[in-house]
Every structure is written in C-alpha cells, then in structure tokens.
Design a protein around this nucleic acid. Structure first.
Length: 256
DNA sequence: ATGGCCGCTAACAGCGGA
C-alpha cells in the first residue's frame, strides 16, 4: 500500500493540483495538512468521486488536517492528546486495515524564543507522549506530516540561513531526535542518504529555481511498520506545476 | 530569510506561514 503526506496550503486553492496528483500517484491513504477550511466547507465530492473516504479536522482560516483513504477508516481521533485547551486543528488519527495512521501539522514556532516557540516545544513533547502510548500497543503505526523540523544540516540547501530559526534550533532538533530514539524510523533516511531531498521551497526569491529547499515533511514509522517499508519517495515535480503548494508530497510504499 | 510570495479573511490590509 502507498501512504502519502501533502501540505497543500489551502484545499480550495489547491483542489485542481490535488486531484491531478491523486489521479497519477494513486495513493491508498493520504494525510493532508494546512487545508485552511472548516469541515463544512471542505470540497468533499471531487475527492470522494476518486474513491476516497474522507475524515477532516479543520478550523477557520488556518491549520487544518485530513485523512483520505480508499479503505474504510476506524477509530478516528481528532486533536493531539495532552492539552484540553489547545484549539488548533493540527492532528488526526485513524486506523486503516490495522495500520494506525497519524497525520500531523507541527507548529512552525517562529519567532524563537517566544510563546510560539514554547507552544512548538510543548506540542512536540505531547507528540512524543502519544508515540510512547502507541508503541506500548505494539500495533504498527506511522506518524506523517509537516513536522516543521529540519533534522540535520544536510536537510537544507543553506543550513547557515536557518541557524536561529525555530525549524532548525538545537532544541527543535533534539525534540525530533527524541522521537527517533523511541525507536521510530525516518523513512526517507532509511532508504537514502542522497543530498538535496527537499520537500519545501519558499514561494519567494526564486527558491525552487535555485533549489533552495528544506526537508521538513517526514514519515516516522513504528518498528512493526518499518519492517514493511519498501520505498520512500518525494514527488518534487509537483512543485513545478500551475499554482503549486510550497510543499510537495512525500510517500511510502509499505508491504501490507 | 528574502529579489519581487501565497492563501485566507465579512477581505481592498493584515496575519500567518517557512
């Protein structure tokens, strides 16, 4: 099965690009981030017409995540546990054919330091706690989405430019590494050490043309899921189409 | 991190994003 993650930066603005990519990539499951739509405004029909079930967790104007799946979804959970007061729509889970799918849109955190950065670090701690709980079940799961984390210098074209940025600060990378140290596998790095495997290029300053990118969209796999990993690919060509998102899809093929 | 961006909002300017 193919599972993909795509930060689409507005589901209404991106609908044609999303549908084109779905038709060509034919993923079985997709987690979307930054849908920027309330659930009632989500353009369900054209996606359902392609054979997908759809679970959304949106809010007005910002954030918002969703899961698409050709197979039925069970036990849908909206919101990341650990803070009842958190109203930002950044997390959704569902089980598909026995595989737990976690879709996440981790906070940007800029400017750092400051309250937004504190929120990012607290959110990452909650994500770690959630990963611990899921590991304890010994059921296969994956956590995919826009992590807003540049894990290592090799994951940016110009790492020096990000030195003081919330996406690359030592505390951010430490928190991400704690997830890996639980026993989760970064699917892309399990398959390649290739340079310039980016998932985001800024709209400004000709970043795509200069390949001035960063790798911030990730698939983390539980041990039982990593055992089934066959391939991990980034659909970078999508960035060169009409009205693209600033992110591109990342997808894994799993032997389930 | 900016060479000039993008999407969203009861919107024609400001915010958030990365």
């Amino acid at each position: 099965m193919i599972v993909a993650s795509f930060n689409i930066n507005g589901v209404k603005a991106r609908l044609p690009a999303l549908l084109q990519w779905l038709e060509e990539a034919k993923p079985d499951v997709v987690v979307l981030q930054e849908v920027k739509s309330v659930d009632e405004g989500f353009p369900r029909e054209p996606i359902e017409d392609l054979g997908y079930n759809l679970e959304t967790h949106g809010q007005k104007g910002f954030n918002g995540v969703a899961i698409l799946s050709k197979s039925p979804m069970e036990d849908v959970m909206r919101g990341l546990p650990g803070d009842e007061a958190d109203e930002q729509a950044r997390y959704i889970e569902a089980t598909v054919n026995g595989l737990r799918i976690c879709g996440l849109y981790l906070p940007n955190g800029n400017p750092a330091p400051g309250p937004k950065y504190d929120y990012k670090l607290a959110w990452m701690a909650r994500l770690e706690s959630r990963a611990r709980d899921l590991l304890a079940t010994e059921e296969p799961f994956l956590m995919a989405g826009d992590y807003n984390v540049i894990p290592q210098a090799e994951d940016a074209a110009r790492p020096d430019a990000w030195r003081d940025d919330a996406l690359f600060l030592p505390q951010t990378r430490d928190a991400y590494r704690r997830l890996l140290n639980l026993g989760l596998t970064d699917a892309l790095r399990a398959k390649t050490r290739a340079a310039q495997t980016y998932t985001f290029w800024d709209y400004q300053a000709g970043a795509r043309q200069r390949n001035d990118g960063i790798r911030i969209d990730h698939f983390l796999l539980s041990p039982q899921c990593a055992d089934r990993l066959q391939s991990c690919e980034i659909d970078a060509h999508v960035r060169d189409r009409e009205k693209p998102s600033d992110h591109v899809p990342i997808k894994v093929t799993l032997d389930f």
